[in-house]
Design a protein around this nucleic acid. Structure first.
Lengths: 337, 337
DNA sequence: TAAATTCATGACACCGGTGTCATAATGTCA
DNA sequence: TGACATTATGACACCGGTGTCATGAATTTA
């Protein structure tokens, strides 16, 4: 059983390679009769074009790369889900590439990636979207890219984000509206722009209610569950203990909840806990976490969709959009007694 | 700035393409002087070979595909982690491809995948590893594959699994040793071979202690958190209520825990709960879940490593291994009162 | 009906590498 | 030093598609 190529189809159908190629790509200037004949041979020989050969001729791979370095696995899962949807709709494939954000190796690493697998475009997920050096590297290599959930970098690339500052503001407002004045805050990973944004929103809300900002209530986390445990320990040891904790993501909030419960504290009666992201864990635990729902899948899907259409036909003006997030109240927050 | 290809390097260095290719691939029969010269030109022109052209000539893509359809996202994350490690060590890349297991579309879907992106090999994760039709399809297309955590299919392909039956046996033994006799069981997804295996282990343990199997204690789940909630509801409504629940994975166990807690039951005092997999959630909740730790990452890593070495050099005998799992006791199980 | 235009098709180069084989250069041995 | 083996190198075809352009046939226009 020999391999079926465009040549075998051509000779079988008694036409030239080029004509077969025309049929393959729905190009004009093929008579109906010829088209029929070629299509019949496709069926008969069970022909499928070789994507690599096509890639060589057109200098395309139909593969999008997804770059990430994120302590929150569920966030990555959501990013992938959105990216995959966009790829599927456009007959693209998704290649995943985790790599360390810190360290000089990054650019080399990406260079290696581009060498071993030519990608048509790259999605930069946090924190990569805010790394100017990487952006300019990709530009120099002429690799199109799209940024997801990145706040800082002002460039002319595709970018889909949500308003972290506003989300954090709203959830803090929610806590304050419940009577809380002593609200601890757990920061996210310092490399992520969301970390600063969420912190800003927290402070803006406090300020708008005349609540004095207290540095002792702020802990440095890094979005991982483990860092949440450490921060929770410090916070729960405070005296007087804050009446509420706002963690920069749900993993860290879950850690606070676990530690508080272990210490016999009732949530939310003794302490209210709020998270961010609406990760699966927020509804998998009891009490469920009050949080901000971010459309991570949707953001990524839009980013990748735009990226693909940009690849097919470079746009004049970049697609830059901010999607809405919304407050979800569950059982982990309640009015102060 | 023109593109740098093997031709530009060749003319720059004053040698033939083929000699450049030899240097590129560390082939013998290149004089030291020539090699130096060519390497210098590589640097000077900042040359990187085009993977697509190489792929066309060698009929390889250096990409492994990972096929999955799994309700447990964290399981997929772990599979990816293991697969990525193996890929990284071998300069391969990983393309992810979720697709529906059920339905006739599957084979077409895979065919499409192979068309749009030539893969050097495929990792089949549960439940795909047990689908004989898919295996024979891949064989007919001459695409090497490796199976992860698959129990049933007896074929001559690479397979790395762990002993689900034994794990379920051990965790049931653990519950029985704590004095439990009325142990509810939540099954996994019917398409997954692990589902039957775990059920078998549960029954074997009961039988070995002369505990009569009671069908009313068995609920049909599908590995998703949501299905766990439904099953938990039925189980907690039973009268008399079982003193322990063994769910076929940690997500469903977490659902039982949440519902029990919501209903003011104390875990483990009022009811013991055990899971399977040692997913992150098992230690992110309070009380932590007693569970069976499966080396999912390691299984996948070994499978992919073998797959890649098989691609480079087809082996005579297939690599088929069963890795150990182990019992992890946490706070969700205790001796009956 | 002749000239001009449009359409259908194929020949051929090309994408950027690798494999095969011939040949020139060098080394080894008697 | 001649016969022979070994090493270094390049010419050229090939992988399986696509792009460019020439050509002959069919159709329209004057």
């Amino acid at each position: 059983m020999k391999k079926v190529t465009i040549n075998s189809v051509a000779s079988h159908a008694g036409v030239s390679k080029k004509t077969v190629s025309r049929v393959l790509n729905n190009e004009p200037n093929v008579s109906a009769a010829t088209r029929e004949k070629v299509l019949a041979v496709f069926k008969e020989l069970d022909y499928t074009p070789n994507p690599i050969a096509r890639g060589l001729a057109q200098n395309r791979s139909f593969i999008i790369g997804c770059l990430y370095d994120n302590p929150s696995k569920s966030y990555i899962t959501r990013v992938q889900t959105g990216a995959l949807e966009a790829c599927k709709e456009n007959n693209y494939n998704l290649l995943i590439h985790p790599c360390e954000f810190r360290g000089d190796a990054l650019i080399n690493n990406i260079e290696q990636l581009l060498q071993t697998s030519r990608l048509d475009g790259i999605v930069l997920t946090p924190p990569f979207g805010d790394f100017a050096e990487l952006a300019s590297f990709l530009k120099s290599k002429k690799i199109p890219y799209a940024r997801v959930a990145s706040a800082l970098l002002q460039d002319d690339s595709i970018s889909v984000r949500s308003n972290d500052e506003q989300g954090a503001f709203e959830i803090t407002e929610h806590l304050i509206s419940l009577g809380h004045k002593s609200i601890a805050f757990i920061k996210g990973h310092p490399d992520h722009s969301a970390t600063q944004q969420r912190f800003k929103g927290y402070r803006r809300s406090l300020a708008s209610h005349g609540i004095e900002f207290d540095e002792r209530l702020v802990e440095e986390g890094n979005f991982s569950y483990h860092s949440g445990v450490d921060s929770a320990r410090s916070i729960l040891d405070l005296s007087p203990r804050p009446t509420a904790v706002f963690a920069s993501n749900d993993y860290m909030a879950a850690a606070v909840l676990k530690l508080a419960t272990q210490r016999q504290l009732k949530v939310p009666d003794d302490i209210s806990i709020a998270g961010f992201d609406n990760a699966p864990i927020a509804r998998h635990i009891w009490p469920g976490l009050t949080t901000i729902a971010q459309p991570v899948e949707e953001m990524t899907k839009q980013a990748v969709t735009q990226l693909i259409s940009h690849i097919a036909q470079p746009q004049e003006k970049p697609y830059q959009v901010t999607l809405e997030s919304r407050l979800i109240t569950r059982e982990s927050t309640s009015a102060i007694k």
